[in-house]
Design a protein around this nucleic acid. Structure first.
Lengths: 110, 110
DNA sequence: CCTTCCAATCGTATATTTACGATGAACTAA
DNA sequence: TTAGTTCATCGTAAATATACGATTGGAAGG
């Protein structure tokens, strides 16, 4: 990147959508979210046993999901419990729902 | 990446979701899709005038969206008209819908 | 044939992502 | 205090993504 994106204007929704999409753009993060979204409320340790990746790598992915706001962590020494961030999850659901619904069928005859 | 992801097993949905999410992970691609999803069926030239980026860069983003299957191109010399790929769009919509709906509220009391 | 127009592709430079092992920090238990 | 457990962070290497200008390819028009 020789230039930043700062000289291009994006709407709040465009930035929010792309940020969430980026968080979802790796299959292992989809897998983690699926595990957390299911009934299993997971500790990191459970994730590391379920997913054949280095613990540090999984921790990195969890951090990415945290920063995207899709999950939240709850320290429970000596473990940390991760859960879906319900509020932001609902927001993301709404954003994607609106985005995909915006397609006007038959708009141009392609 | 020192190792490929090939030694980790992902479901078809996990791979499909992450691939679509990756295509959506850049704000300019969200913008392009919004423009195409609206009533305006665009030629590349219109996009380059609407988006302050080099023509080659926009072409690269269009290629990414093409490869993700979200849009389709129609050669109309000397121009090319791009449209939403309705069938895949609907598939993506369904995938994301199911994904976000899979969250079980109250599952773990976080 | 030659030029013009439009879009794709090439070549390149830089930034980010992804993965790993190693180390560090915090708490528990002996 | 001394280990042991759990997870985050650091440091690093390789792959991928992003952006640009320059070039190429193909069709239309002179």
């Amino acid at each position: 990147m020789q230039r930043t994106l700062s000289d291009i204007s994006y709407s709040t929704d465009e930035v929010a959508l792309s940020a969430i999409a980026k968080a979802l753009s790796h299959p292992v993060r989809i897998k983690i979210l699926r595990l957390l979204a299911g009934e299993a409320c997971c500790f990191t340790g459970e994730l590391t046993s379920l997913i054949p990746m280095a613990q540090s790598t999984i921790s990195q992915h969890l951090k990415a999901l945290l920063e995207a706001g899709l999950i939240q962590g709850e320290i429970n020494p000596p473990k940390v419990k991760y859960c879906i961030h319900r509020e932001n999850w609902a927001k993301a659901q709404a954003l994607f729902g609106e985005f995909f619904a915006s397609e006007k069928s038959g708009g141009c005859g392609c």
